[in-house]
Design a protein around this nucleic acid. Structure first.
Length: 359
DNA sequence: GACTCGTGGCA
DNA sequence: TTGCCAAGAGT
């Protein structure tokens, strides 16, 4: 089975940017970027990121602002902050190199059991096991696991098996082969006719591939109504920087929030801007309704243009009283390109750039 | 163990 | 259009 899988991988592996040299830094960044993210997206974004941050030392020395901008659109932004913290640790403790030591790599922020194993096996060909979503799904079929993947017993079996199954001297290719087969053949809709392991697959023998892995109860996706305000004053737009941690930590946004029951979107945006900035505002236009999906929510984002309700003759803009942000600025529409925004707000910006009212 | 944390592709 | 879900980690 191991030989069949290695032979399959040699022929069928995708040409990914870090697979030519397996440079340890490239592998580490690829693995962090690859968490909960399909590799085609990583392949598209990794070269740009590495061009700007070619070494741990380079990333360590950058501003968090620039790191988040480079990560914009990839989601799970704590990964970017953790990766920079990891780069700073590597620079301070290991001379800017990746140590060939499981405990040392595992101790880096944002690096868990999977990522540590992936980095050490791919960068250094060390025989360290990996279990990701691909391996778990593949093993559930190969060994006919009749408990949900997440159960403690199944997790223990998966990791024990992944460790025991590595062919000596082939950790790099074999670990990747398991994942690649899971991604390309043994996916959500399995293509058993293209699989090199059907002769070894227990679920296939029993004709219950479709029943593996055993599904868990899916959580409902909650619809959410949100209002946001593009506050314009003397040709400049108000943006605020979100708090350092939590959702979209450190990213910039337009102020806004949930529309309460019994409240119109229009009322909500006026209330939210007063709460979050201290500014009394009036709505001047409805810009758009942006729809954006999340893992557990689907948001309808009601977007308004607003103006300050202050004395038009006043020379200075009063300072905002921020309650949901760590910083704020008044910028031009063109400036927005330099700041990292959540994807929903980036959609709004794209619309404004093509909107004559803002041109 | 349960929950949070994004996004976009695809069936 | 809707639901599913990815080379998971931290709390």
């Amino acid at each position: 089975m191991q030989r069949a899988l290695l032979d399959w991988f040699a022929v069928n592996q995708r040409p990914l940017p870090w697979r030519t040299e397996y440079h340890p830094w490239h592998v580490l960044v690829a693995e962090i970027m690859g968490q909960q993210t399909q590799l085609d997206r990583v392949a598209a974004r990794l070269p740009v990121f590495l061009d700007r941050f070619p070494s741990p030392t380079a990333l360590a020395a950058a501003s968090e602002e620039e790191v988040l901008k480079a990560w914009e659109g990839l989601g799970y932004y704590a990964r970017a902050r953790n990766l920079q913290a990891a780069a700073q640790a590597l620079t301070a403790q290991y001379g800017g190199e990746i140590p060939q030591d499981l405990d040392a790599v595992r101790a880096l922020p944002g690096v868990g059991r999977y990522t540590a194993g992936a980095v050490l096996s791919q960068a250094f060909n060390l025989p360290v096991p990996i279990v990701d979503a691909n391996v778990a799904r593949l093993f559930a079929r190969l060994f006919d696991l009749d408990e949900p993947i997440a159960s403690r017993e199944t997790q223990a079996f998966l990791w024990e098996t992944a460790a025991a199954i590595i062919p000596p001297g082939h950790a790099r290719d074999f670990n990747q082969a398991l994942m690649e087969l899971g991604a390309l053949v043994c996916g959500k809709n399995p293509r058993c006719s293209a699989c090199p392991l059907t002769g070894h697959c227990e679920a296939h023998r029993l004709n219950i591939v479709e029943e593996r892995p055993v599904p868990t109860q899916a959580k409902a996706i909650i619809p959410l109504e949100v209002a946001t305000g593009v506050l314009v004053h003397r040709g400049r737009i108000f943006i605020q920087k979100r708090l350092p941690h939590g959702a979209w930590g450190g990213l910039w946004e337009f102020p806004g929030g949930r529309i309460e029951p019994e409240e119109t979107p229009h009322q909500a945006v006026v209330r939210e801007l007063l709460e979050e900035t201290g500014y009394p505002v009036a709505v001047t236009d409805k810009i758009a309704l942006v729809r954006h999906g999340y893992t557990t929510y689907k948001v309808a984002l009601h977007c308004f243009a607003c103006r300050l309700e202050i004395d038009p003759a006043a020379e200075d803009i009063p300072a905002p009283q921020l309650t949901a942000a760590q910083d704020a600025r008044w910028v031009t529409l063109r400036d927005l390109a330099h700041y990292a925004f959540p994807a929903g707000h980036r959609k709004l910006i794209d619309l404004m750039e093509r909107d004559l009212r803002f041109a």
